[in-house]
């Protein structure tokens, strides 16, 4: 088991380094002089003189070799210094932390609800294959992955906010503000997850040990809940954790549509205003979050799966 844990942690670190390097190099992907571009953005379009350019380069350390720049950047990042927002002048980390709570609330609420619903739905669909509930589950899934979440959100707003005046279309703080965004999120969240739960359960229900359990005369409830589910939990948990990555995507569109004061909306705003440090930080941080969650889930594997826990 320890070998497994060590291996996973090392892998995660390598990937983190790779992701950080990619974020770092975002500055260099466009041809042309990064210094010039930074100057242009900050000056509002006024081109720099050669002297100003040299000064800027020295100031930002753009003269030094790439790896050294990367090293400097990385050491700052590890201390939590992502630079200052070009818009507000305040530290990026501050701007992000200010808005973090709103995003986290939306995310956690929606993720929990969609996880529970898709879990139940998926299991019911697998147990009742080809019957009504299965068709309902599969239809909802199909619609959920085909209808873009921003369109669904706008539809919800149009129906419930504009036409029926039931819920507000934007705003933050009161319970009613949460209803539409969470609904939109949950709808697309259920679609991918319940499919996977269903598929995993079906695969497991075809296994030999399930037939063996049936041969013992055990009640169906026991076979599904004890024998099948415990095997299904492992892949399902992994999948749910990887789907967190997709949920960040969902966050972006939903926060924009509902004008939710969260991190993702700030990211979009920063992209438009060319606030590069924020953009870079967001790319890096969203990956770090994703990698961390994956790592935690993988490590908990070691506890849940006896084949890993008690390696011969």
């Amino acid at each position: 088991m320890l070998e497994y844990i060590a291996k996973r942690i090392v892998q995660a670190v390598i990937i983190l380094l790779g992701v950080s390097f990619l974020s770092f190099s975002l500055l260099y992907i466009f041809p042309g002089d990064p210094a010039e571009l930074i100057f242009l953005v900050n000056s509002g379009g006024v081109p720099p003189t050669p002297q100003e350019l040299e000064e800027l380069r020295a100031e930002l350390g753009l003269n030094k070799p790439l790896l050294i720049q990367y090293g400097n950047w990385l050491s700052k990042i590890l201390k939590g210094d992502f630079g200052n927002s070009w818009n507000t002048g305040r530290p990026v980390i501050y701007e992000i932390s200010q808005r973090f709570r709103a995003s986290a609330e939306l995310f956690l609420l929606s993720f929990t609800i969609s996880a529970i619903i898709s879990f139940i739905l998926g299991i019911l669909a697998a147990m009742n294959k080809d019957k009504v509930i299965d068709h309902i589950c599969r239809t909802i899934s199909l619609l959920g992955i085909s209808i873009p979440n921003f369109f669904f959100s706008l539809m919800l707003i149009w129906i419930f906010s504009v036409e029926l005046h039931l819920f507000p279309s934007f705003g933050y703080g009161k319970l009613e503000n949460y209803i539409l965004p969470v609904t939109a999120w949950v709808f697309s969240g259920i679609s991918i997850k319940s499919r996977f739960v269903r598929a995993t359960m079906l695969e497991i229900l075809n296994q030999e040990y399930i037939i063996a359990a049936k041969a013992k005369g055990l009640p169906e409830r026991v076979i599904v809940l004890k024998h099948a589910l415990r095997n299904a939990l492992i892949p399902i948990l992994t999948y749910f954790s990887t789907s967190i990555g997709h949920l960040v995507l969902g966050s972006i569109m939903i926060e924009v549509v509902f004008a939710w004061p969260g991190v993702a909306r700030f990211f979009i705003f920063s992209v438009f205003t060319r606030d590069f440090p924020v953009v870079q930080a967001f790319v890096l941080l969203s990956s770090v979050a994703f990698i961390s969650v994956n790592l935690i889930v993988d490590l908990s594997y070691a506890l849940i799966d006896p084949r890993v826990r008690y390696e011969r």
């Binding site: 040990y209 063996a212 049936k214 041969a215 415990r230 492992i234 006896p306």
Partner: peptide, 19 residues
């Protein structure tokens, strides 16, 4: 099943639940 008539399926490795 199991009580009056019991069956041992082929392949014990597959018939036992790994978890």
């Amino acid at each position: 099943r199991g009580k009056e008539i019991a069956i041992m399926l082929q392949n014990p490795s597959l018939s036992l639940n790994p978890v």
